[in-house]
Design a protein around this nucleic acid. Structure first.
Length: 615
RNA sequence: GCCACCUUAGCUCAGUUGGUAGAGCAGCGCAUUCGUAACGCGCAGGUCGCCGGUUCGAUCCCGGCAGGUGGCUCCA
């Protein structure tokens, strides 16, 4: 943490205290939970009995906070022996603080996770604590590790932001508290910039754009978390998926097709039944057999591999399959396309010998990089490794893990030097992963593509090949998703592009509009549309009896890359001057072309998947 | 699932301190035949999310349900 970050931390943390102080002034019986610093701000967990806070209270609370800030009272630190600290909490009627202090005294920590592991007999790293520090500003005192700013006047710019419920210490069985969030920055300017970024994000919200651009809908009758894709949205999906397919086919993948349900037996054998039982949609047949909607595709694909004896000579075998899986998520977790019940995966599985896995992973990385550089999302690599302290939670042997993890690390070093992070404990239970994080146009990070090594299912399904010695040899599976969930990916991509899709995947590439309703004009427009379609372009006519200005506006709102305006002039010369969507970098297309030249140029632009949009 | 808030026309939103509602855009019709971001006039469109309760009367008050939004990982 550099000193600037340290200062910001102290400001935000001090604001949490000031907010709690203000609330205590307004509702004196408030019981305080914890009030930490979070990304871009802070929160405080509060228990105000039956008093329900609402956003209408924000002005009142902010005003009181500003009063405390204006008084510029110093933050003073003092230390009490732990037992006196507990007495303080009792006298101040702060039961949550008392609980924290008792944990401190007993286990040396207040972190719930560490306390949990202690319950399971694991050693807690904390030494027992004999004293606790407090911070006091004016009439407000709080148990606190600090640090704080010198005085309440030095906290920068803040704004209360939202309100939510949160369980005391994150446990469902504990009382529910009200969590009040604020954002805070060192200066008004930074605060304004941050709020402006949120505004921009709101404008780009994929749920709004999905509605405005007619990409997908939800139906109350079909149910939450089950998006229905319109023709436009389907075109977008199809174009993106086709690109991934092309890249994979160059690498030797073959398409397979599988049913969306399976007998329970498949997942009992794969081990998924025990682990994912609650997330499975289950079906009972009229004869009483238990089936499930597939929550993943690997076990199905493994059956195709295992349908006949395999020679080492035919390996690697590579299957690809873009298909929906279904997961029974908690209703409150659903939101837009980011979290859905019907998930389309651009799934792929490679069945290969252990020594081949490294080369396969490298080639998958090529595909991922090509895809993401084309759509303009920068990638960062995270190597997700197992936690050796917990070896028995994983499939496979320690030697296998070591070999494959080292292999992946070599690949990473060879390709990006030290420009990647390692995350111990982030591996899947069946193997380590190369996870890719994408940076979108607003600077937000999302987990996108993944390459996963798998020792678990080859073991579970007893997948082998016959090797040079005529013996059965255990194989390895490599999972790879480029977009991962198409729904989640599209939520990111729609916001990344703000719906201004490049020509190659734009649902509508060219709109041709007529200046008047005369038959010759309409015929000419229709002939352009016809020729465009013959070239495989997505062209639409706008023959509405409206002004040219209005039709231009409409094309602009639909974010169509190219618009042709057709009137007497174009009919006579046979040439057009395309109107280009504002965000696109102006190019040779802006000049006059014959219609066919123009269509050919756009066809080329689409085929080569160049992006002229500036995001 | 849990907590808070929200749900009025296809969309965005107004409104009724309880007497069953309005605008803009979109749609349709008429007029217009238009040259690069909104021409004009008109029509139609709603069991005010659903079910129940209170009331002479409920879109409004109460309860339940459904759907949506923000959270529920960040730890003195």
């Amino acid at each position: 943490m550099n000193s600037e970050n340290g200062q910001m931390y102290a400001m935000r943390h001090s604001l949490a205290h000031i907010m709690a102080n203000a609330i205590q002034h307004i509702w004196p019986n408030v019981k305080l939970g914890v009030g930490p610093v979070v990304e871009n701000g802070f929160y405080y967990d509060l228990d105000i009995g039956d008093q329900k806070l609402s956003e209408d209270d924000f002005d009142k609370i902010e005003a009181e906070m500003k009063r405390i800030i204006a008084s510029d009272i110093p933050f003073e630190r003092f230390v009490l022996p732990i037992d006196q600290a507990i007495t303080w909490a009792q006298e101040a009627h702060q039961p949550y603080k008392e609980e924290l202090l008792n944990d401190l005294k007993r286990a040396g920590t207040t972190v719930a996770k560490e306390l949990d592991s202690e319950e399971f007999g694991m050693p807690s790293n904390g030494v027992k604590v004999s004293e606790a520090s407090f911070y006091k500003n004016g009439d407000f005192t709080d148990l606190c590790r600090g640090p704080h700013v010198e005085s309440t006047g030095k906290v920068g710019a803040f704004k209360l932001q939202r309100l939510s419920g949160a369980y005391w210490r994150g446990k469902e069985t504990n009382p529910q508290m009200q969590r009040l969030y604020g954002v805070a920055f060192a200066t008004e300017k930074e605060l304004r910039q941050y709020l402006a970024m949120l505004e921009e994000a709101k404008k780009r919200d994929h749920r709004k754009l999905g509605q405005d651009l007619d990409l997908f809908i939800f139906s109350d009758l079909v149910g939450p978390g089950l998006p229905l894709w319109t023709p436009r949205g389907t075109t977008l999906r199809t174009q993106l998926d086709r690109f991934v397919q092309e890249l994979r086919d160059e690498m030797g993948f073959e398409q397979v097709t599988i049913p969306h349900i399976t007998k329970r037996d498949l997942y009992e054998k794969s081990g998924h039944w025990a682990k994912f039982k609650n997330e499975l949609f289950k079906i009972k047949t009229r004869e009483g057999h238990e089936y499930a909607m597939k929550p993943m595709n690997c076990p199905h694909h493994a059956q195709i591999y295992d349908s006949r004896p395999r020679s080492y000579r035919e390996l690697p075998i590579r299957y690809r399959d873009t298909t929906m899986v279904y997961r029974d998520e908690q209703s409150g977790e659903l939101g837009g396309l980011s979290r859905v019940l019907s998930i389309t995966q651009d799934d792929a599985h490679i069945f290969c010998r252990l020594p081949q896995a490294k080369t396969e992973a490298l080639r998958l990385w090529d595909i991922i990089e090509q895809f993401y550089s084309t759509i303009g999302i920068k990638l960062k690599l995270r190597l997700s490794l197992h936690d050796p302290k917990n070896q028995n939670a994983y499939a496979g042997t320690e030697e296998q893990w070591a070999e494959v993890e080292n292999g992946l690390r070599d690949i990473a070093h060879g390709r990006v030097g030290d420009d990647f992070t390692e995350a111990v404990g982030d591996a899947a239970f069946y193997g380590p992963k190369l996870d890719f994080l994408g940076l979108d146009a607003l600077g937000r990070e999302h987990q996108v593509a993944t390459v996963q090594m798998d020792f678990g299912q080859p073991e579970g399904f007893d997948l082998t090949c016959t090797n040079e010695d005529g013996a059965d040899e255990r194989i390895v599976m490599v999972h790879c998703a480029v977009m991962g969930s198409l729904e989640r990916f599209l939520s990111i991509y729609i916001e990344h592009t703000a719906g201004r899709f490049p020509v190659w995947n734009a649902p509508e590439q060219i709109r041709v509009l007529s200046v008047n309703q005369e038959q010759t004009t309409i015929d000419f427009v229709d002939s352009i549309v016809g020729r465009g379609k013959q070239l495989g372009l997505r062209v639409a006519a706008d023959h509405n009896n409206e002004s040219v200005g209005k039709k231009i506006r409409s094309a602009e709102l639909w974010k169509v890359p190219y618009t042709l305006v057709i009137g007497q002039k174009e009919i006579e010369t046979g040439e057009v001057v395309p109107r280009i969507r504002k965000d696109m970098v102006v190019s040779e297309q802006a000049q006059s072309h014959t219609v066919d030249e123009f269509l050919k140029t756009v066809q080329h632009e689409a085929k080569s998947r160049v992006s002229k949009t500036s995001l």
